[in-house]
Computed example of a mutant assay.
Amino acid sequence: MTTCPPQSVRPGHGLTVADAMDPCDYRIADDRTVDQADDMLRGADTEYLLVCDHDGRCEGLVTRTGLHPFLARSWYTERTAISATAHQRGPFAWPTMGLALAALAMRIKHLAVWPVVDEDGYILGVLTADRATGLLAVAPAQ
């Protein structure tokens, strides 16, 4: 069996997730309802909310698209907690992760947005596929 060294597998741009991540202003607790999440998404005019547990650690990310099945039934939105929905869950990106590796992982997982957490699971920001791809396109390979 032949293996390739990591340098030949991914470009060596030297950029990390920390270089490309954006702050995330919109969060919701995992015990909040789908109805509350929908209100926040509409009010903030955003496509996603980061989901946090009772300790403030990142549990995942919920999108408008992910809430559609629950919003079709009005009585369901008032009773269903975000934790019970099928939303994007970990593993998450970390700030020291190579940006090329993160972009590859996002392509494989079909993610447009990926939460970035510290070693304790607290949210530091988000990485978007567009930003990662854009930075890698203009960064010189090392």
Score class of each variant (00 low, 15 high):
Ala72Lys: 07
Glu59Asp: 10
Arg57Tyr: 04
Gly98Ala: 14
Pro69Phe: 03
Leu71Trp: 00
Gly56Thr: 05
Tyr76Ser: 12
Leu111Gly: 05
Leu71Gln: 02
Gln88Pro: 02
Ile82Pro: 02
Thr77Glu: 12
Arg57Asp: 02
Thr80Gln: 07
Trp75Ala: 03
Asp53Gly: 12
Trp75Tyr: 04
Pro91Thr: 10
Phe92Cys: 11
Phe70Gln: 00
Ala102Ile: 09
Thr77His: 01
Val113Glu: 14
Cys58Pro: 08
His110Cys: 07
Trp114Gln: 15
Thr77Asn: 01
Ile82Gly: 04
Ala112His: 11
Phe92Thr: 13
Trp94Gln: 15
Ile82Ser: 02
Thr65Val: 11
Ala84Pro: 00
Trp94Asp: 12
Arg57His: 10
Arg79Asn: 06
Ala103Ile: 02
Leu104Met: 07
Glu78Asn: 05
Arg64Met: 12
His68Asp: 14
Leu111Gln: 14
Thr80Leu: 01
Thr80Gly: 01
Thr63His: 03
Ala105Glu: 08
Phe92Tyr: 15
Phe70Glu: 02
Gly98Ile: 03
Lys109Thr: 03
Gln88Arg: 15
Ala72Met: 07
Tyr76His: 06
Ala72Pro: 00
Thr65Asn: 05
Arg64Asp: 10
Tyr76Val: 13
Gly98Thr: 05
Thr80Trp: 00
Leu101Thr: 09
Leu71Met: 06
Pro91Gln: 10
His110Arg: 13
